[in-house]
Design a protein around this nucleic acid. Structure first.
Lengths: 112, 112
DNA sequence: TAGACATATGATAAAGTTATCATATAGATT
DNA sequence: AATCTATATGATAACTTTATCATATGTCTA
């Protein structure tokens, strides 16, 4: 693999990683799971989101290694992957606090 | 501001923050600027991207506090914000290395 | 001040992402 | 086995994001 391909591949992985975070549904789920593991139904109740919306996005989060799932009878309990995601989620406050007004006003990455 | 509003506002800021990262153009620019400050023209040459594409995305990055710019005659030199962004960019390798195959195969956040 | 070079910006078509709907699967309970 | 409850998934319309084009602005030098 050439240096250029490697750089490209790396950028692409970074992009996919950040994409998983850059969606309100997934972020709200992540924030909820920071407190404790939850079932799909519980996530729906707490967020008000539709069940299929939650399931689709949990599938994404699980696939990308953000959450783990354990089957429990009829229910499936989702929890954050403590080793990698929790420390990352804990890290962004400094930048976000400093630049919150700007983040909220960017014309490229828009708040709807 | 209620607790709920505060949580919502926080999630939204996180989402905007990650959005700034979740785009290939912006990530390639960030990776280049990790090495040294560059002008718009230099970024265009190194990436092969169109000038207006680069300028639009630099505007976003500057607005959100990721890069700083200094005017230098005709040129404008862009550099990474060392205090917040460089440490963040240095942090993700562990997760990305561990889950790279999965990131590349997610059906929700797709590689084009 | 004219023109050459560097960068910025508005509008918009094309591309990508998301939520939703309808339906499927799977385990529990009767 | 039939039904109920919990969760998953495929298809797609609606929405969002992006790159591009055309053009504007700003700065330098002759």
């Amino acid at each position: 693999m050439s240096k250029l391909q490697q750089v490209y591949r790396m950028d692409n992985l970074h992009r996919l990683f950040f994409k998983a975070f850059s969606n309100q549904t997934r972020l709200e789920i992540i924030q909820l799971l920071r407190k404790k593991p939850l079932t799909v139904t519980e996530i729906c109740e707490k967020t008000g989101f539709e069940q299929s919306r939650v399931s689709h996005n949990l599938r994404c989060l699980e696939h990308c290694g953000f959450v783990k799932v354990t089957a429990n009878g009829n229910f499936r309990e989702y929890s954050l992957d403590g080793e990698t995601i929790i420390p990352i989620v804990n890290l962004f406050e400094k930048h976000i606090q400093r630049y919150k007004e700007r983040l909220e006003n960017c014309e490229i990455i828009k708040d709807e």
